[in-house]
Design a protein around this nucleic acid. Sequence first.
DNA 1: TAACATTTTGAACGTTCATTCAAAAAAATA
DNA 2: TATTTTTTTGAATGAACGTTCAAAATGTTA
Lengths: 195, 195
Amino acid sequence: MAIKKFDMDVVLEQAINTFWQYGYHGTSMQQLLQATGLRPGSLYREFESKEGLYLLALSRYAAATITTVNNRIQGSSSVIEGIKSILLDLFEEAKAKNYCGCFLVKTQLELSAHNESILTNVSEEFAKIEANYCAILNTIFAPEISLQYAKQLMLIIFGIRVYSYQSEQPEDVEEFILSILPWLKDDSNHNIKQG
Amino acid sequence: MAIKKFDMDVVLEQAINTFWQYGYHGTSMQQLLQATGLRPGSLYREFESKEGLYLLALSRYAAATITTVNNRIQGSSSVIEGIKSILLDLFEEAKAKNYCGCFLVKTQLELSAHNESILTNVSEEFAKIEANYCAILNTIFAPEISLQYAKQLMLIIFGIRVYSYQSEQPEDVEEFILSILPWLKDDSNHNIKQG
DNA sequence: TAACATTTTGAACGTTCATTCAAAAAAATA
DNA sequence: TATTTTTTTGAATGAACGTTCAAAATGTTA
């Protein structure tokens, strides 16, 4: 029997990048074939349809998002510093030439009227991301406070994701963040637990 | 000579609703013809193309947005109360069955990679909206504070617009808003200037 | 009423869309 | 080497896309 020529990870990454940039309806199969290097037959045998490929790309993106967050927290001197650096990173990302925002957000806005299952899908991913932030905050705050702060964090992140399309950023981004989320100022005794 | 049968205002409103819900690429000319009641020839004679109709719909939506904001402020007992009610309205809107978010935001996210002129266009509209908030805040705050608060307001509004797709809202929405924008708590001596 | 200018009509156009499938190629197994 | 199983190939398909335009209808002006 023949063996697969393509690397699934690479193909999905190319698909993510294309969908992420141009959106679902704005991406043609032609573009996907070119981006992935696959031929129509192979792509359809593997992913069944454009939508099938999209859903796989989307869930992979969502999983990577959570991993990135957790790595950033682990790599920081404290939870608070970690969260701050995540938010600052979002502003930095926005300076890139082909800034694409957040793939999940774009999906939510583009497809909520077309495909209810995708809306549910994305909402679940966001719930996971919020729950992950909540768990992180729980290591330094009381449970009910963590729930509240996680919600704030999600809303602010959505705000940054959209606001960043504007060319002008706040002068002092860190000050801007701290003024909206004042609890990020309090960084006493919140070191990451080791081992 | 023949006279126009259709009402431009009505046609544009239908076009806005259709584009707003399904997006630019997700809306077909068939849908637009059905929604507006126009025939292909008439639509193309009047608007030149799908993109032409879209741009007109978009700028009309943006103008209406600013009008709505200003009416809300004028109809409130104070600037602070007005802004609070605008934010609370956004959360209320989100409860509607066919919640569509913000047409400008959706446009920005969907078309930024396809059409640079639309990106510029939308950015300019957002700049106008931010400037309008800034002018409103200027009636009760110092200029540099108003600039800062207007930016915060825009980011929070973007956040609400996206976060609202999630089915679960914060328990006490007003408390939620006040915790992110604490300056909305200070409502002393900020009455709307009369006549 | 005749001439004119404007708008409406809707069938038809060429293009691009997502998708299919029979045939060829490729590797593993017998 | 022959057989079997899986993958690749890429031309072809029908549907849907945005758009056009000559002819008919409409109402104003001469």
